[in-house]
Amino acid sequence: MRQIFLDTETTGLSPESGDRIIEIGCVELVNRRLTGNNLHLYVNPQRRNTEDALKIHGLTDEFLATKPVFRAIVDELLDYVRGAEIIIHNAAFDVGFLNEELKRIGRPLFTDVVAQVTDSLLLARDMFPGKSNSLDALCKRFEVNNANRTLHGALLDAGLLAEVYIRMTRGQEALVIDTEEGVDGELAVPLIDLRSFEIVVIEADADEALAHAAWLADLDKASGGRTVWPRMAA
Rank of each mutant, 00 (worst) to 15 (best):
residue 82 R to G: 05
residue 20 R to P: 12
residue 69 V to C: 13
residue 91 A to C: 08
residue 65 A to F: 04
residue 88 I to S: 03
residue 42 Y to R: 13
residue 36 G to M: 02
residue 65 A to G: 04
residue 42 Y to F: 15
residue 51 E to A: 15
residue 76 E to L: 05
residue 73 I to V: 02
residue 47 R to G: 11
residue 37 N to T: 04
residue 70 F to K: 04
residue 74 V to I: 06
residue 72 A to P: 03
residue 57 H to Y: 08
residue 27 V to M: 05
residue 57 H to I: 00
residue 36 G to S: 05
residue 59 L to V: 01
residue 70 F to R: 06
residue 81 V to Q: 02
residue 74 V to W: 06
residue 57 H to M: 11
residue 32 R to D: 15
residue 34 L to S: 11
residue 33 R to L: 14
residue 45 P to A: 04
residue 63 F to D: 04
residue 47 R to Y: 07
residue 87 I to G: 02
residue 96 G to M: 07
residue 36 G to K: 07
residue 92 A to N: 07
residue 93 F to C: 05
residue 33 R to A: 14
residue 51 E to T: 15
residue 46 Q to N: 09
residue 15 P to R: 09
residue 75 D to P: 02
residue 14 S to T: 14
residue 87 I to K: 01
residue 67 K to R: 14
residue 91 A to I: 08
residue 34 L to C: 10
residue 16 E to D: 10
residue 69 V to R: 12
residue 21 I to L: 08
residue 77 L to M: 07
residue 27 V to R: 14
residue 68 P to T: 00
residue 22 I to T: 01
residue 87 I to C: 00
residue 65 A to C: 08
residue 46 Q to E: 11
residue 15 P to V: 02
residue 14 S to Q: 13
residue 50 T to R: 08
residue 88 I to P: 07
residue 40 H to D: 07
residue 39 L to Y: 05
residue 84 A to L: 00
residue 71 R to C: 07
residue 82 R to A: 14
residue 36 G to E: 05
residue 45 P to T: 00
residue 38 N to V: 00
residue 60 T to Q: 02
